[in-house]
């Protein structure tokens, strides 16, 4: 788990996002302290996914500033799994890229929490949609990054799988980590701060 000292808080000031010539949102400001979670809500097209991509560094802001930890874990709409590789091979590559100590430990725990330990050697192409999503979450869990950015993490998951994530989320937050998530369904994040993004 990340060291609370090293997790610099997330600060967003006057952030603006423009995609395909359209201003998605502007003048967005918020702060997130270490150990806190932020649930981003809003109608489709409000820019929830764009915000997460901005925070992940995948998009350049059209204006404003953004301060975040250097090491992040991002779960987008796709799970970045290679069909021919086994679940474990897929996750080990990303965990290795994330670096840090105890890669194997983090990997084993992430597989355990997501209930994929029994399928570690199965090629990713055989997984169901829900299992693939769980593999995507396992990648985030194994990353060791202080800031988790989760875009609709529960797509395709049943309630039992969602509930199993609760302890992992709270352990991350208690260790001083941060979570920013978008979701249409309630997430087991305890009492997260809320950011409602308005459509137009």
């Amino acid at each position: 788990m990340p060291d609370p000292e090293s997790a610099s808080p997330l600060t967003v000031t006057d952030l603006a996002c423009r995609r395909g010539g359209r201003l998605v949102f502007a003048a967005l400001s918020f702060r997130l302290a270490a150990g806190r979670a932020l649930l981003v809500t809003g109608p489709n097209g409000a820019g929830k996914s764009s915000l997460l991509k901005l925070l992940a560094g995948l998009l350049a802001p059209a204006g404003g500033t953004l301060e975040r930890p250097g090491h992040i874990a991002y779960l987008g709409h796709d799970n970045a799994l290679k069909a021919v590789l086994s679940v474990e091979e897929n996750l080990r590559f990303w965990a290795g890229l994330s670096g840090g100590a105890a890669v194997e430990d983090r990997l084993a725990r992430a597989l355990d929490v997501t209930g994929l330990a029994a399928l570690a050697d199965v090629p990713a192409r055989l997984l169901s949609a829900g299992q693939k999503r769980r593999a995507g979450l396992a990648r985030v869990l194994a990353s060791g990054a202080p800031l988790w950015l989760l875009d609709e993490p529960t797509v395709g998951l049943d309630t039992a799988s969602i509930d199993r994530l609760g302890p992992a989320f709270s352990a991350h937050l208690e260790g001083g980590g941060m979570i920013v998530a978008t979701s249409h369904v309630p997430l087991p994040l305890g009492a997260p701060e809320q950011l409602a993004m308005g459509g137009r």
């Binding site: 209930g115 994929l116 029994a118 399928l119 050697d121 199965v122 090629p123 055989l126 169901s128 299992q131």
Partner: peptide, 15 residues
């Protein structure tokens, strides 16, 4: 082997 892996995937899907 592949069929066995598929069965494990199915079995794991049902909690």
């Amino acid at each position: 082997l592949e069929a066995a892996a598929e069965r494990r995937v199915m079995a794991q899907e049902v909690p």
